[in-house]
Amino acid sequence: MRTRALGAVLVKGGLVGGLAGCGGTQSALDPRGPAAATIADFSWILFAGAAVIFIGTMALAAYGVLLPDRTKGVPPIRFILWGGLVFPGVTLLVLTVATAMVGNAVDFRTHPEEPLRVTVVGNMFWWEVVYPDLPGGPLVTANELRIPVGRPVEVTVTTRDVIHSFWVPALHGKMDLIPGRMNRITLIASEPAILRGQCAEFCGEQHAWMALFVVALDPAEFDGWIARQQAVPEPPDPADEQLVRGRTAFLEAGCGTCHVIRGLAEGPYAAVGQLGPDLTHVGSRLSIGAGVLPNGVGPLAAWIAGVQDIKSGARMPSYSTLDGETLTALARYLESLK
């Protein structure tokens, strides 16, 4: 762990500093889980080794260039044999074994504790997150993966359209989401934190804005969050006309064709669509549009009226035909879904 201490010094010393602000860390050098920590340690060893070899090789070359035409003592063939074949041969043999061992150390498939199972489904350009076997029934949310600290989380990843890649650098490496395949990666968070992840496989026009937040919570808090998310949201207080108007607008504008809000499953405009993110508790999320805007009334209104402008190529049209009052009401209503 000494290497990580060194790494931490370098990080804090500003060499690789400037950690992310409100968005949560997305740095592989700032690990918040055992897998990323092991890989970070391994990385620091690799950097140190590479630096030593690089400086050594350059020193040999510089010696040859700067002190020319001396009999430099070493017969060239033996020099090549040791420097070019034996040294790398042995170093790489060690590295091959080390690679295998580090690979095993970050493979939590055989972890003794029963993992929390989560399915992450990629979409152009957002993430659907499903908790399939909770005691209170499955839970669907989007662009946000909340997990309990310390417990292994087996993430099954797949996709509804093109190839994406699931990457939360502070927890682990990448795992691709491939049509027709179910890949798995097991994560563990070691402390409560908000971490940012991002699609790492080019997936089309808005590949750049396909972010995902992982929120690691204390187990008790996590259970509380699950309970809140599983609850069906209360209908708005009839006294708050704007909220009522917002809910009506949501249904009448046809939002339910693509989105689900649990509790609005009845009637001609039922919100049961499966094409976009589940909005049941959209107000409780950290971001909207898969990381493109923070959550809030303002961003929600901007998003609804100007999706194509904010995130061209997203599968949702810009609803700029709504009148001003309706738009603000709709944004407030969605924001109220905590």
């Binding site: 592989a28 790489l92 690679t99 890649s165 650098p169």
Partner: peptide
């Protein structure tokens, strides 16, 4: 040629790093 030696050795060493699977899981596509 000397510039090549400098840059290529550096690139070769990072190449060995990305050959190490766990490191590559982080570095890949970054």
């Amino acid at each position: 040629v000397l510039g090549f030696l400098f840059i290529f050795v550096a690139g070769g060493l990072t190449g060995v790093m990305v050959a190490a699977v766990p490191f590559d899981w982080q570095a890949h596509d970054s």
